[in-house]
């Protein structure tokens, strides 16, 4: 299968507000894609629809050829904006948890990454700083050998050194069968690692193009284009 994600006329209403309006996309495998837009533009809504945390109002959405459900959750690895591992477990118990539920979880890779950051397996999650918890969560998500990675604001609110580490982790884990969708508003930091960019404004698709095309056709960087499109 060449496409990893396909959606047609995907729409989500929250009561009277429209979160996502008539979105149609085809995302191939082996790409790193930036989902760009200001806060409240619909990025998180789209990601939540892909992970099954929201159900669409209308339209279709398939990942790996399956509609959203247990089958897609097996092949999608999701990093939400907020940490979800704020509980009583130790790091090694979290590794066990992921191994139990996800067949594609590579526990050795996770252990290596944790060791590189000097995070002990016996460390308790509730005693960790916010930054360390975020790194543990990133490691758990990237240690899965998934077909689609959905990273919601992975570098927002993070110091530059950690940002570099995250970007390096993303590049190191790149695989041809998988695609990574990164939602962010910090574009200049990640522009060089993106293949394609999807710009969303107020729930509508503004642009879906390769980053090289944008530079060649419009002669501007993605960052400049974003500022132009979303200027206040």
């Amino acid at each position: 299968m060449d496409s990893i994600l396909q959606c047609q006329n995907l729409t989500k209403h929250y009561g009277s507000t429209c979160g996502l309006n008539d979105l149609t996309l085809d995302i191939p495998r082996g790409r790193i894609i930036g989902l760009l837009g200001p806060n409240g533009s619909g990025k998180t809504t789209f990601i939540k629809l892909c992970t099954g945390l929201l159900v669409p109002t209308s339209g279709t959405l398939t990942i790996g050829g399956h509609p959203i459900g247990t089958e897609t959750k097996k092949i999608v690895s999701y990093l939400p904006e907020h940490t979800y591992i704020n509980n009583w477990m130790r790091v090694k118990e979290m590794l066990e948890f992921f191994s139990d539920f996800y067949k594609d979880f590579n526990v050795d890779k996770a252990r290596d990454m944790l060791q590189n950051l000097q995070i002990g397996l016996d460390d308790k999650l509730k005693n960790m700083s916010k930054g360390t918890k975020e790194k543990v969560q990133l490691i758990l998500v990237m240690s899965r050998e998934a077909d689609l990675y959905l990273l919601d604001e992975p570098i927002g609110g993070v110091d530059p050194a950690a940002r570099d580490y995250i970007i390096k982790t993303i590049l190191t884990n790149y695989q041809e069968k998988a695609s990574i969708i990164l939602s962010t508003h910090l574009i200049s930091e990640i522009e060089s690692i993106l293949d394609e960019a999807i710009l969303i404004k107020q729930g509508n698709l503004i642009l879906h193009d390769s980053v090289d095309e944008i530079r060649e056709k419009k002669g501007v960087s993605l960052d400049a284009l974003f500022r132009e499109e979303f200027k206040c």
């Binding site: 790409r31 790193i32 390096k168 590049l171 190191t172 790149y174 060089s192 690692i193 293949d195």
Partner: peptide, 17 residues
């Protein structure tokens, strides 16, 4: 390609090009 891409901080597809 992958190692060069990481060294340069770019997407492997870009490095490929």
């Amino acid at each position: 390609v992958r190692d060069l891409a990481i060294e340069a901080g770019v997407n492997p597809n870009t490095m490929q090009r």
